[in-house]
């Protein structure tokens, strides 16, 4: 079984060609700008859309676990009590609730993925496992990757690299492409903001590059107020180049995670303005001049 938040078909920015992306639950980082905050926890997460809610309390009344209550008019969900029965979701006439997180058999996931096999074949696409951090469920991940390869699928992962090298070594043979996040050169800053282990991430990246440099695309999310200082970005590109990275995606900051964070009752402290592609153009030119392939966006 694998815990999944959702499966997105016709994903066209998660690797080459037309793909299906499977978003897995759980993450070893806790980036506050995360685009998919509902994937961070390994437990199912209940999203509550305040704009749709009319405070009728039907959800509260329908919950057999008493996991929902309203305090001073505000919705509260107790994830520890919740058993994921979805009664509240089914009873809400406003469609204000969504439960994200479901255990699925790998066979069922791949059945869904295989529905678009013809599109992958036409476009050199395939399946991408994303999250969260797909390596949180490394054993299940290895199993499903093996099955996917047996079905002739091109496999990709979107990964933070923040896990033991041994896990990476287990899964690497079944992965055709790593979309490898590189968020910050400074380990202390990374730890402070994301709880990530920069040294581990760098070691794992070096390992992958040593295995097969063509299997790795480094993705650099440029986050306003975190890593968007020009001198830092240039330094990072120098570092990656020196490491042997050949392909870089520069991802402009966006605030797509804001709405979901709010639906989870979490504060979202990063700006709402999205970053224009043009801001990243000098970095792209810099990387190109160094002989790396570079593009803006995924």
């Amino acid at each position: 079984m694998i815990s999944v938040t959702h499966i997105e078909r016709f994903a066209i920015h998660d690797g080459p060609g037309i793909r299906t992306t499977v978003f897995l639950k759980g993450c070893t980082l806790c980036c506050p700008w995360c685009a998919n905050p509902e994937t961070q926890s390994s437990q199912p997460v209940l999203l509550h859309d305040m704009r749709k809610c009319v405070s009728c309390h039907t959800c509260e009344q329908s919950c057999p676990q008493k996991a929902i209550h309203f305090q001073k008019g505000r919705f509260h969900h107790d994830a520890q009590r919740c058993n994921g029965c979805q009664s509240c979701v089914e009873m809400c006439l406003q469609d204000a609730l969504q439960l994200r997180g479901e255990d699925m058999e790998s066979e069922a996931i791949l059945h869904e993925v295989m529905k678009d096999k013809d599109y992958y074949d036409m476009s050199h696409g395939g399946v991408t496992f994303s999250g969260g951090e797909p390596f949180v469920q490394v054993t299940s991940l290895c199993e499903i990757l093996q099955e996917a390869k047996a079905l002739g699928l091109h496999t990709a992962v979107e990964t933070t690299g923040n896990y033991p090298l041994a896990d990476l070594q287990r899964a690497e043979p079944f992965i055709d492409l790593f979309l490898y996040d590189f968020k910050h050169l400074d380990d202390a800053k990374l730890l402070q903001f994301t709880h990530g282990n920069g040294q581990l991430i760098k070691t794992n990246l070096a390992y992958l590059l040593h295995q097969d440099v063509h299997k790795v695309i480094v993705r650099m999310p440029i986050i306003t107020g975190f890593n968007d200082e020009a001198s830092l970005v240039y330094q990072e590109l120098d570092y990656l180049h020196a490491l042997g990275v050949q392909s870089v995606h520069l991802l402009p900051y966006h605030s797509l995670g804001k709405s979901k964070a709010e639906q989870m009752g979490k504060p979202y402290v990063f700006p709402t303005e999205i970053m224009a592609n043009e801001v990243l153009e000098p970095y792209r030119a810099y990387a190109l001049a160094k002989g790396m392939y570079a593009q803006i966006g995924g």
């Binding site: 016709f10 066209i12 060609g17 037309i18 013809d118 599109y119 036409m122 476009s123």
Partner: peptide, 16 residues
């Protein structure tokens, strides 16, 4: 921006 992928989307549909 995604013209090539849309063309492949259409082509696959037509092939099907």
């Amino acid at each position: 921006e995604d013209r090539e992928k849309i063309k492949m989307l259409f082509q696959t549909y037509f092939d099907k």
